[in-house]
Computed example of a mutant assay.
Amino acid sequence: MNPFHLVLALIANCAWGFNFIAGKIGADHFQPLLFTSFRFLFLLLIMLPWLRPAPGYMKPLLRVAFLLGVGHFSMMFIGLNGGGNIASIAITTQLYVPFSAILAAILLKERIPMIKILAIATAFLGIIVIGFDPIVFNHLNAVFWVLGAAFLMAVSTVLMRRFPDMGVFRLQAWIALVATPSLLLLSLIFESGQLQLLENLQLFDLWTVCYSAVGASVIGHGILYYLLGRYTVATVTPLMLLAPLLASIFGIWWFGDQLGWRLVVGGTLTMGGILLVSIKIEKLTTLFNIKDRRFHKK
C-alpha cells in the first residue's frame, strides 16, 4: 500500500475513533434513540442521490438496513450512553469480526481453521478480562448492549454476502431511509422530553449529529470503500483496527478516562485475536510456520 493510501487509512481510523466521542456526547445530550434518528435523518439528506432500488434484492436489502440502522446503531449508542469509558465500548464493537466468522461457519458452512478458532477464543477472553475492570464492571449493561450491536453487525455482514455489492453509499442511503422513522418511533415510545429538547436546541448542539453522519459514515466508510476497490479485504481490514486505539486515546483526552491494567490486558488480547481472525489463513500459516495441506495440493 502506497503512502497516500496509508494516510487515507489513518484518516478513516481517526474519523471512526472520534465518532465514539461525538456519539457519547450526542447520546448524552439528545438521548440515544433520538440522537440516532437525527443522525440518520442528516445522513439520508446527504445520501438521497444514491437512494435507488435494487430489483430482485429489495427484501434482503431492507432486512440488512433494519438490522444495521435500527438494531446495530441504536444498541451501540445506548451502550455509549451508559458506558463508563470509551475504550471498553470501542474494543467491544470489534467483536463483530469473530462473530462474523462464527456465523459464516454456521450459516454458510465456511471452515474455520484451528488458528482462527484460538484467535476467536482469545478475543472473547479479552472481553471477559475487560469486564472485571472496576469501571467497566459497574457499567456491564453497556458492554452487553454493545455486544448485541456487534452481533447484529455480524449477522448483517453474513446476509450481505447473499446479494451483490451495491456500493457503500447506496447501502447507507437505504439504511438511513429505514432507520430514521423507525428510531424516531422508538424514541417516542421509550424516551421522553423530546419537545423540550427541540425547543431548547441550539445550532451548535447539532455538531455531534453532523459529525457522526459525515465523519463516520461518509468519510470513514467512503475511504474504506475506496481502499477495498484497490486492495484485498485481508490487506485493508487489519489497518482499520487502529480505530479502537485512537478512540481510547480520544477518551482519555476528552473525558479523562482512566485505563486500568485489566482494560489494557483485555484490550490487547481482544484486538490481537481480532487481528488474527482478520488476516488471511495463508499469512497466518506462514507467520506461525504451520503447514496446512490445503495449500500444498497441486
Rank of each mutant, 00 (worst) to 15 (best):
L198D: 05
L198M: 14
E199H: 14
E199I: 09
E199S: 14
E199R: 14
N200A: 14
N200R: 12
L201N: 11
L201I: 12
L201E: 10
L201W: 09
Q202S: 14
Q202G: 13
Q202D: 11
Q202R: 15
L203Q: 10
L203A: 15
F204W: 13
F204V: 15
D205V: 10
W207I: 15
W207R: 12
W207E: 13
T208L: 09
T208V: 13
T208H: 05
T208F: 05
V209P: 04
V209N: 08
V209S: 07
V209H: 06
C210I: 14
C210R: 01
Y211K: 06
S212M: 13
A213S: 14
A213I: 06
A213M: 09
A213Q: 07
V214G: 00
G215Q: 06
G215T: 10
A216N: 11
A216M: 13
S217I: 11
V218P: 05
V218A: 07
I219Q: 08
I219T: 07
G220P: 09
H221R: 08
G222D: 07
G222F: 04
G222T: 09
I223V: 13
I223D: 02
I223Q: 05
I223R: 02
I223F: 02
L224T: 10
Y225M: 11
Y225P: 01
Y225L: 07
Y225E: 15
Y226I: 00
Y226P: 03
L227W: 04
L227C: 09
L228W: 04
G229V: 07
G229D: 12
R230G: 03
R230E: 12
R230Q: 15
R230S: 10
R230C: 04
Y231D: 02
T232Q: 14
V233Y: 10
V233H: 08
A234N: 14
A234H: 13
T235M: 11
T235W: 07
T235H: 06
V236N: 00
V236S: 01
V236C: 00
T237Q: 12
T237G: 03
T237R: 05
T237M: 11
P238K: 00
P238I: 00
P238Q: 01
P238L: 00
P238D: 01
L239S: 00
L239M: 13
M240A: 09
L241I: 02
L241C: 04
L241T: 06
L242I: 12
A243T: 10
L245C: 11
L245R: 00
L245V: 15
L245P: 00
L246F: 09
L246V: 11
L246T: 04
A247G: 13
A247P: 01
A247D: 08
A247T: 07
A247V: 05
S248D: 02
S248Y: 03
F250A: 15
F250E: 01
G251A: 09
I252S: 01
W253I: 15
W254G: 00
W254R: 10
W254Q: 12
F255R: 09
G256R: 07
G256S: 05
G256N: 06
D257Q: 01
D257C: 03
D257Y: 06
Q258Y: 11
Q258R: 11
Q258W: 08
L259A: 09
L259F: 06
G260S: 05
G260K: 00
W261C: 01
R262E: 11
R262K: 11
L263D: 03
L263N: 02
L263F: 08
V264W: 11
V265A: 14
V265I: 15
V265D: 04
V265R: 03
V265T: 13
G266A: 08
G267H: 01
G267D: 04
